[in-house]
């Protein structure tokens, strides 16, 4: 019998894997992939709660907005990463160190 905590466990695994990607990767595009994993885990949570919990659609609508926002955010982030590559010839985050004190 598949219950709510099963879905929550999958989503927690996605969340921690996304966090691991954000923390360890050097490449900016790869860090963005980790962020997408985190957003997907939250979406999975919302849909699972909507299915097993009160039965309203608020969670699913929230998830739709999250998807839209994720698309906008990735577009802006990639524009910034492309500018970084144009200016520095590298997509690696630890080589962007001008602002080091």
């Amino acid at each position: 019998m598949i219950t709510l905590p099963h879905y929550l466990t999958v989503s927690a695994a996605l969340f921690t894997l996304g966090l691991l990607g954000v923390l360890t990767r050097r490449n900016a595009v790869n860090v963005l992939m980790g962020i997408e994993l985190i957003l997907n885990s939250a979406n999975l949570n919302l849909v699972a709660f909507s299915r097993f919990g009160p039965g309203n659609l608020q969670g699913q609508l929230f998830a739709v907005f999250v998807i839209v926002i994720a698309a906008a955010e990735v577009a802006v982030a990639l524009a910034i990463v492309l500018t970084l590559y144009r200016l520095r010839r590298t997509p690696n985050l630890d080589e962007a160190d001008f602002l080091r004190g």
Binding site: A28, A48, E73, I80
Partner: peptide, 30 residues
């Protein structure tokens, strides 16, 4: 270069922290 680097760091930190906040909001909904 400074503007670019500042915005890059801002967007990565901002996106990760709002992602974590969103996870918490989903638990609140649950």
């Amino acid at each position: 270069r400074l503007s670019n680097e500042a915005s890059l760091k801002y967007i990565l930190f901002g996106a990760v922290s709002t992602g974590a906040m969103l996870y918490g909001l989903s638990l609140l909904y649950g």
